[in-house]
Amino acid sequence: MSLPAQPPAAAAAGTAARGLRAARARQPRADGEPQHAHSRGQIMAVRVIAGMVILAIWQFGAMAFAPAYIPRPSRTITQIPGVLSDQQFLSGTASTLLAILEGLLIAVVIGTVIGLIMGRLRDVDRALRLYVNSFYAMPIVALVPLLTVWFGYTPNARLAIIVIEATLPIVFNVAEGARSISGSYEDVARTYRAPWWRVWTGVALPASLPYLLGGLDLAIGRALIGAVVAEFIAGLNGIGYYILFNVRSFHQDDAVVAVCVLIAFALVLRALINLAVRRGLPWYRAA
């Protein structure tokens, strides 16, 4: 005797998930022990200690096993003030930074426009899909040599690669965002007789913003890679080139400082994006 069974998958998933969440909310923890949160101080301490251990391993490993020119923490740290006041470093860093920001800005504008168009106009989306997907799938750095032929060994080549690298994820994400706007928002706009451009700016654009920022997040990483590769190949003044130059001239510790600055740069930019999301889009909640 079996009862007819209808499997509404979505409902089932929701049901099970609800049950799970409720169960989890009630239980202290699976093994019955209460969770103790570590205090912030404790966490910080553990991390600092871990950092020191890493530095120590690096230091002694380098001293014991590696040739003398290999960077080690003792020298790297002492070089920091020197590097930070080095004219070449400062101008290079500024150059790269400005190129990134400029490139990102251009990419945001171009990417948003194309993305919105693709998201809203199905036909354009289909026509351009092939190219967007192909470019997204390929390693964009492969274009750098070509760009150096077109732009020469000039900062324009670097700017070009940054723009291309950054535009793609933005187009991609904005298109997805614009496309997935619930029809009900559109209906609301229509019942208020909003003209098409208002729908675009008033509904499509704000709804796409979280996606835009997500794309920007991705774009930063890619842009940095492109910039460094361009600087390497074209010998442009920049933080990437500074690294290359100093490694080649056996000032590897200086180069390490520059790498750390580069990483810090990447982290700060991404943190800014996250901040922008939290502050500027309070209505958007990530799970």
Binding site: M1, S2, L3, A5, Q6, P7, P8, A9, A11, A12, A13, T15, A16, G19
Partner: peptide
């Protein structure tokens, strides 16, 4: 009463 569903995955099934 689940005869016929031996090869199904949980996500394909209702809560019951």
């Amino acid at each position: 009463g689940l005869e016929g569903f031996e090869k199904s995955y949980p996500y394909q099934l209702s809560g019951g």
